[in-house]
């Protein structure tokens, strides 16, 4: 086993160049990794929004109108009931009629529009979750038709003796329309890989007192 002929100078320089290059590359990678450069770029922090702000949720364009505390006479002559209502103006940008849905509760995921209300602070718990509906003159509905703006109300019943909070903060997600492999999947909450849904905006709404009927 012999090496091909060559000048003495070249023979001396060559074993240096490659290891040095490798060392520089490895050191560069190491420093980058040590400084966190290989981590996934962090998501944009959630936008902080207030009353009247508009958020593009993919499937919907949503305006956060207000939050209000209301009182209604109890049924069957019972004591008055107090509610916390959150009001949205929702426009369905999709191609199909969908529903107002319901926010998730106690680990159960929500669905449709209200499924994007990922968390409310402070939390108001009840057995069946809040009442979600489209408010209109006359009969309320539960549908969001394409291209139409609807006033959606999420109404929490406050437990007896509990005062309405001074303000509420909503963690709001967005929807995306993944391309199905063999069939349409429809709109799904945007997530990071398999993690929880991404909070796109944190909306803080002061609670307005109102003695509505």
């Amino acid at each position: 086993m012999t090496s091909p002929p060559g000048g003495a100078a070249t023979r001396r320089r060559r074993p240096v160049a490659v290891p040095v290059a490798a060392l520089v590359a490895a050191a560069g990678l190491g420093i980058t990794a040590a400084l966190g450069g290989l981590d996934e770029a962090p998501d944009d922090p959630p936008r902080r929004l207030g009353p009247g702000a508009v958020l593009d949720q993919g499937e919907f364009t949503t305006r956060f109108v207000e939050s209000r505390a209301t009182t209604r006479p109890g049924r069957y002559g019972g004591p008055d009931k107090r509610y916390l209502e959150i009001v949205f103006q929702v426009t369905n940008k999709g191609d199909e009629t969908t529903g107002v849905g319901a926010p998730g509760q106690g680990g159960k995921p929500g669905y449709f529009f209200a499924g994007s209300l990922l968390r409310m602070t402070p939390e108001i718990r009840s057995d069946f979750g809040p009442d979600v509906f489209v408010q209109a003159d006359g009969v309320p509905g539960k549908q969001l038709h394409p291209g139409m703006e609807s006033t959606v109300v999420v109404r929490y019943e406050l437990p007896e003796g509990r005062r309405p909070p001074g303000q509420v903060r909503l963690d709001v997600g967005t929807f995306e329309h993944p391309e199905g492999f063999t069939q349409e999947i429809g709109w799904l909450l945007a997530k990071d890989d398999d993690g929880p849904p991404v909070v796109a905006a944190q909306v803080t709404l002061p609670v307005r007192r109102k003695a509505a009927g």
Binding site: D95, E96, T97, A136, G138, V139, P140, G141, K142, Q143, H145, P146, G147
Partner: peptide, 9 residues
């Protein structure tokens, strides 16, 4: 191409 379901009102 939009699909409107019959109203529930």
């Amino acid at each position: 191409g939009r699909r409107y379901a019959a109203t529930d009102k």
